[in-house]
Design a protein around this nucleic acid. Structure first.
Lengths: 215, 215
DNA sequence: CCGGAACCTACTGGAAGGTAACCTTACGCG
DNA sequence: CGCGTAAGGTTACCTTCCAGTAGGTTCCGG
């Protein structure tokens, strides 16, 4: 009989590891579409092609699920950046490569990272974890500057370093936001603009100077 | 007669305009303490010393109430900035004064503006209005640069101008966030640091150059 | 004394987080 | 081979919370 072979190849039982990733994918989609509170577990489960209790069984509560999303995406992004920043390159080259990787990543995950990240800020329950990831990013950049300044034979003040790093991270996030909302924008171009303002500063920019990458 | 002055100063009937401001004050407090969704209309009404139906009668729905908050605070901030930026000062002076006003404002409304603003981002319903306010801010800064560049005899590309402005706005917001979380930080100092990185850029900073305000 | 503005208590209706109890397929092991 | 059991999966429910409202009361101005 025909009926013995099920005509629905989609609904197969899958091992936990696979389902978990599918659920996280769905959760990222829904969270970034709706925001944390407005997203319902029903919709996430639906989007993942599974029923709600499974989500609870595998990922725990809604909060835990959200944290898992942020953690996965954040780790991917940080790895993508760290991978391309060579430790012994000149500072501007490091910054350039990091920025290019960052905007490349955001460009490739438009509805994923940027929006998710924005969601997490201000949601009381997550600011601690978010601040921690942000801190790691800031520390990477601050460390970059620390070495560069020391290479110039001066000793930097920590407060100045981290303030500068914070400002750069904020600037990058702002442009990433803009990028996320403009599907036809070119990440590489954004990275170049960001590099210009970050490295040269407004003062030199409006005098017509341009940063060149001469790799 | 003495009786004409009521002896109960707390529970007096008040004209609409006054109550509305009290409600907005309470709403800003509660929204920034809890976040948009976690804030309940009951708590806001309670905090305002009034009952819930009054809030609905005067300010409409929860969304409208939130928008009213954002709008009021945002307008106040923009006015504070525009008021100090003289139209015919050199560009760096304008930027410096604007930044000082901005961080001064945030410092004076720590639990008000910064958190409220962060709340609004990512909440589907508000991104349009938020983007509009942000756009006004970006346009102010972009206009500042446009004139400065033209004063140098060159014609700027709009895309570059707004990208630069976006980056600066993002950097300022990021530092403002940091400021909102550090009650003992000095707004003036943050403004100086921001001015350094914005005007000089990282390249000159790590060579040890410093922007001086010589007013 | 009447109209309307300020104000209240008390309710409804629905949405959504979370769970209990149950089915069903794969597959390891005797 | 077959059988038991755990892992994959489901339906249907409970509960709580909260935006929003119905309908009534008090007070002031004219």
């Amino acid at each position: 009989m025909l009926a013995s072979v099920p005509a629905t190849p989609t609904f197969k039982r899958l091992p936990r590891a696979v389902r978990e990733q599918q659920m996280l994918d769905a959760a990222v989609r829904v969270f970034s579409r709706r925001g944390f509170h407005a997203a319902s577990m029903d919709e996430i489960a639906d989007d993942a092609g599974i029923s709600k209790p499974m989500v609870y069984a595998y990922l725990g509560s809604k909060e835990q699920l959200f944290l898992a999303c942020v953690h996965r995406e954040g780790t991917r992004m940080l790895e993508a950046i760290v991978a391309v920043v060579g430790a012994d390159l000149p500072a501007d080259q490091q910054l350039w490569r990091g920025l290019r990787a960052f905007f490349g990543f955001v460009g490739a995950h438009r509805d994923g990272w940027a929006v998710l990240y924005r969601q997490a800020r201000g949601q009381e329950a997550f600011i601690a974890d978010l601040a921690h990831m942000r801190e790691r990013m800031v520390e990477v950049i601050a460390g970059l500057f620390r070495r560069a300044v020391q290479a110039h034979g001066r000793l930097p003040r920590e407060a100045d370093l981290s303030a500068t790093a914070y400002a750069l991270v904020g600037a990058a996030e702002s442009l990433a936001d803009w990028l996320a909302d403009h599907p036809d924008a070119d990440p590489e171009k954004i990275a170049t603009r960001m590099m210009n303002v970050a490295w040269l500063g407004a003062g030199q920019l409006l005098r017509g100077e341009v940063w060149r990458r001469d790799e």
